[in-house]
Computed example of a mutant assay.
Amino acid sequence: MHRRAYLAAVGTAASTGLAGCSSALNVLGDDPCTGENCHIGMSRTEFLPEVYEVTVGDTVIWKNTSEADHTVTAYESRIPDGADYFATGDFDDQASAYDAWHDDRGGRLAPRETFEYTFEVPGTYEYYCIPHERAEMVGEIVVTE
């Protein structure tokens, strides 16, 4: 009888310990990009993290970590004066990126693909995913000196 009580106590302790590890893994799983392969990941309708801070001259790498197609498309009116426009598909402006997506999915970032951009002007850059804008898939890059 004491053996069963001992095994039950050990099993409960092990489960509790593993539950802690499991929740830690879930927290880490919320941010699919850490390290050099990418800085910002994507869920079905979110950029992860939504706000990312870098310094002038840093390159940011987005990776489509979901199973849906996405875009990274700057809001032309919400980037600093003097900054170059950026979007997957290398479009010159927001209207071109929007039209290309709606014509034939131009600028598409397929699952596991990456997009990178180097930020040369300090300020706040707001961007979105064209097919998921209505779901509020938006992000922000804050560039400091």
Rank of each mutant, 00 (worst) to 15 (best):
T71H: 02
V121Q: 03
F47G: 00
A95H: 03
T65W: 04
F47N: 01
Y85R: 04
W62F: 15
N26S: 09
E36D: 15
G29Q: 12
V142W: 02
Y98C: 02
G29T: 06
E67F: 09
P111Y: 13
E46M: 14
P80M: 13
F115S: 01
H132I: 06
D30E: 09
V138Y: 03
D90M: 14
T45G: 13
E46L: 10
Y125G: 00
R44N: 13
G106Q: 09
A97R: 00
P80H: 08
T59E: 15
I141L: 12
D58C: 12
S66L: 08
N37G: 09
T55A: 12
V138N: 10
E46A: 14
D81Q: 15
R134C: 01
E53H: 07
I79Q: 00
N37M: 11
D84L: 12
G29P: 04
E53A: 14
V142I: 15
A100T: 05
F86A: 01
P49C: 12
G57V: 06
R112E: 15
R108E: 13
C21H: 11
G82M: 11
A83N: 10
A68W: 11
T12F: 06
G57T: 08
I61L: 11
L48T: 08
P49K: 12
A100N: 06
Y52R: 06
F115H: 05
E53I: 05
G82E: 07
N64I: 07
P49M: 13
A110H: 14
T114P: 05
A13K: 04
T59N: 06
T124C: 03
T65P: 04
N26K: 12
Y85A: 01
E116C: 03
M1V: 07
A24T: 07
E50P: 04
D99H: 10
P131E: 03
I79F: 01
Y125A: 02
F91R: 00
